[in-house]
Amino acid sequence: MATPLFEQLNTQAKLAVYAIQERALLSWNAVRFIFVRPFYPADVIQQMDSIGVDSLFIVVLTGFFTGMVLALQSSASLASFGETAMIGRLVTASMIRELGPVLAGLMVAGRVGSGIAAEIGSMRVTEQIDALNTLGTDPIKKLVTPRLIAALVMLPVLTVINDAVGIIGGNVISTLYVGVPSSIYWRTVWDQIASDGFTGRFIPNDFIQGLAKPFVFGGIIAITACYHGLNTTGGTEGVGQSTTRTVVVASISILVVDYFMTQLLLGVLNPR
């Protein structure tokens, strides 16, 4: 009986395409409303506080321990080549290019994405979204756009802090545990930053790669969370499902997009 199976696959494929289309529409409207009055600056600042400042602690903690463990792991490998002085380069490259953006993205997806989905989902099931509509306010403009702006701005900021704290964490281990002097560590850090060349003479290519990613990840987290929140059905149980779905979809999307962005950016910034 191939027909029912085919029909099921066909339905699933249509649903998947529909979901992508809905996300794209939501993204487009949220971006469009950035430039349309009325603006909600107070909401944007409140969301920046919620997404950025409130996430600072977990991001700093994640960055510090990641930097330390990177230094620890690489010291063992580099020691076999007698190149422990290169710890700074390894930690810096790993943090700025990959671990800083991805870990900040994953932490924020877990902490903030779930919060946004739960908040908007609760508003949906308690008819507050309908109330916004009937009061003549577009919920996308009032709820999604401020969160999108806040995430687009704050995720790169969090990533920079994550990178910096991670490199400092690496310095702590390389100095106290491996025995590489701080001056050498920081010189190798700069060597790494300068090694991949500059765009416009002054902007290191590593920074471009390290900041383009969190910008995109911020968008993924905000849109995924708002999409699942706005489409919540089924009361409080539905809110729980939206929250879970947001964390899973946003985290997987971050990891998949990270790969393709890396390939794209390496091609653009370091053409072989």
Binding site: S122, M123, T126, E127, Q128, D130, A131
Partner: peptide, 8 residues
Amino acid sequence: FQGSALFD
């Protein structure tokens, strides 16, 4: 609204 739908 049925549940008042006040903004929390």
